[in-house]
């Protein structure tokens, strides 16, 4: 009996390692390019970082001015300045935020947790709800319920995030009074005094907004994938062998659509972050999203660059995980390395 493609364990591991290394290398080159693009763009801006800092400050000592000028290397040629900045980044020095009068790294660290809580909640719920809904729609494809849900999902994906947030704000916070209008905790309370419950209370509406704008897409994608699977020969054959609807979903449907769905969910980090910028601005939620919008409007270049870098890394991490998942989990690529 011939065994085609019978792989040795070591060979497979080597192939996977090489594939992962190649993906990583590409990611590094892309992140570097992204920092360059961001740097060039803020350099093109008519705003002078030192001037901006001085304008916003009440009293700036000559030493402080010097420190900023030194950080930006204003007297150096542009290439040198980029390299300086990159070097500072690698040392963990992201500069000082003009807006918050704190090191950028500190501002980001503090706000990233808020944004992460928001995005993670929305990510998990939109993924689960969208996947379940998509499975149901796909299984009853062509029914009236599927038709209505599909139209609803299509309409929902045409709704701007910030407007949906405003509608939720109107209904649940202003109208019904169930939720606070904004901020991650009650205003005027020191950060340490805010209870977990209060945090969740303030997180709910922005998370709901973010969840709503993404689950429709997940549902439509899952539905399409399941419909495709249900039309395959192997599902027809499973039905011919007496398998019922749920049995087929469990045995063949989930097996074939779960991986693409999870992969897609990881690849959607960019949209997730974009959505959180809008949701945070509607609800004055103190995360990276409201900070990046404020940084741009107030010409806080170090903060703008810092958040760009962090969000880009975040997106690349998602893409990387998606890439690796596809390679490692799918037996066709796992066993063959093809």
């Amino acid at each position: 009996m011939e065994l085609t493609g019978a792989p040795t364990k070591a060979g497979t591991a080597k192939r996977v390692a090489w594939a992962v290394a190649k993906t990583l290398l590409r990611a590094v080159s892309l992140v570097l390019a992204a920092t360059l693009v961001a740097f060039v763009l803020v350099s093109l801006s008519p705003v002078d970082p030192v001037q901006q800092y001085v304008l916003g400050a009440d009293a700036v000592s000559a030493e402080q001015r010097e420190a900023i000028a030194d950080y930006w290397g204003l007297d150096d040629p542009p290439v040198q300045r980029y390299l300086n900045w990159l070097g500072a980044l690698l040392r963990g020095d992201m500069g000082t935020s003009l807006l918050y009068r704190q090191p950028v790294a500190a501002v980001i660290a503090q706000r990233f947790m808020n944004t992460l809580a928001l995005m993670l909640t929305a990510w998990v719920f939109s993924g689960l709800i969208g996947f379940a809904l998509g499975c149901l729609m796909g299984m009853w494809q062509g029914s009236w319920a599927d038709g209505i849900l599909r139209r609803l999902c299509l309409a929902l994906s045409s709704v701007p995030t910030f407007w949906l947030g405003m509608v939720f704000l109107l209904v649940f916070a202003v109208g019904l009074g169930w939720f606070p209008v904004g901020f991650s905790g009650p205003i005027g309370m020191a950060d340490g005094d805010v209870t977990l419950w209060q945090r969740l209370h303030h997180l709910a509406l922005p998370a709901l907004t973010l969840c709503f704008v993404s689950f429709a897409g997940v549902a439509l994608h899952t539905r399409q994938k399941l419909v495709d699977v249900l039309q395959t020969d192997y599902v027809l054959f499973a039905r011919a062998r007496g398998a019922g609807r749920w049995h087929i979903l469990k045995r063949h449907g989930l097996r074939n659509i779960a991986l693409p769905a999870v992969t897609l969910q990881f690849a959607a980090f960019a949209e997730l972050f974009g959505g959180s910028i809008l949701a945070e601005n509607v609800f004055s939620y103190p995360g990276l999203g409201s900070a990046v919008a404020a940084a741009g409007l107030n010409s806080d270049v170090p903060l703008l660059l810092g958040i760009t870098l962090v969000s880009t890394l975040f997106v690349f991490t998602g893409n990387l995980v998606a890439n690796i998942l596809t390679r490692v989990v799918d037996p066709r690529t796992r066993v063959n390395g093809a």
Partner: peptide, 24 residues
């Protein structure tokens, strides 16, 4: 392909903010 990956790697809205910022 690399360029497409780059343009899709920076969150869309962040890139828009950067460009708007660059253009004043």
């Amino acid at each position: 392909n690399w360029l497409i990956d780059l343009a899709m790697g920076v969150p869309h809205l962040v890139l828009l903010i950067l460009i708007a910022f660059a253009c004043g």
